[in-house]
Amino acid sequence: MFKVQEIREIIRLIDHSSITEFCYEHDGATLKIKKETEKTVQVVQEPVTVQKAEQQVQEQPKALDAPKQETPVKPKEEPKQTETKAAQVEDDANIVEIVSPMVGTFYRRPNPESDPYVEVGDVVKEDTVVCIVEAMKLFNEIEAEVSGEIVEVLVEDGTLVEYGQPLFKVKQK
């Protein structure tokens, strides 16, 4: 199995290189890293559960150490790739989800006395802060990254969210 440090180092090297795709097999474990844009590094794990078209990716890495999750791997199997994206397109092509970039506690307001950052019906822009996710006392202000209207809040204030868990549904303009 790959060590966390090794994978982190590989990600770093690839991130700073012009390589867009990287595949490494060792002891029956396969590591595939695919870079879509300059800044996006994706770690694609195998095996991956392929969901029905209208469902989003379930094989989200679980914890903070998520992208280095050690999953048993069957190297011979046809690689089925799934992608993690900031916004997952649902059946309605105009609805996108804002997902959590890390594990932590979901907060809808900057502090308990304040109003929530956003409510259903609010119009958000790419850089509108929609919530906070806290892990190990780091408070991450999450930006919408899409513009549109909040149509659903999927998580209750103060609950624990996983890496990649959908938080809001946004109807794009």
């Binding site: 800044k39 970039p101 006392k137 780091l138 408070f139 991450n140 930006e143």
Partner: peptide
């Protein structure tokens, strides 16, 4: 005490 705050996109 330490208070850490971050502004981040999904992968940046």
């Amino acid at each position: 005490g330490i208070l850490t705050e971050m502004q981040a996109e999904q992968d940046k």
